[in-house]
């Protein structure tokens, strides 16, 4: 009896906790991403490859550093947003920041076949899975 009472209470508390968390999260915001990390990335699977897309509007290609080692991908750089001193600022939502992020990929990639393209403020990196890392199909006789 007491046990079932406590689970009901636990369930209610868990529900309250979940609601609190959803209020605090920025999932319901009007922006594409939250205010946490920069730059935000999406990782897609495309047949055997991976495609990483990062939101990096208004960045100079020279300011971007992309490195890969085994299954570790590093994306670093700087985004500068500056306004002259003679301008008065009404609203400032865009951020300037230094960033350095590393991603652990689910498999080793063919490092010399990686393609990176920066277009319209999006950085798209195609990461082909290393031949040696691909699963082998074994025929059963």
């Amino acid at each position: 009896m007491f046990g079932s009472f406590s689970t009901t209470l636990d369930t209610l508390l868990a529900l309250q906790d979940a609601m609190d968390r959803s209020m605090k999260s920025d999932y319901y915001d009007m922006n594409t991403s939250g205010r946490g990390v920069f730059p935000t990335i999406n990782l897609f699977e495309q047949e055997d490859n991976l495609m990483l897309v990062a939101e990096l509007p208004g960045i100079q290609k020279e300011d971007l550093k992309l490195e890969v080692k085994n299954n570790l991908l590093r994306l670093a750089g700087e985004r500068k947003i500056e306004y002259g001193k003679d301008l008065s600022i009404h609203r400032r939502e865009r951020r300037s920041s230094n960033f350095d992020r590393s991603f652990k990929l689910p498999f080793a990639v063919e490092s010399d076949k990686i393609k990176a393209e920066y277009k319209n403020g999006l950085l798209a990196v195609t990461l082909p899975r290393a031949e040696a890392d691909k699963p082998r199909k074994i025929s059963i006789s």
Partner: peptide, 9 residues
């Protein structure tokens, strides 16, 4: 033709 496996935005 992609399948998202990890998303931030």
């Amino acid at each position: 033709d992609t399948k998202p496996i990890y998303t931030e935005y």
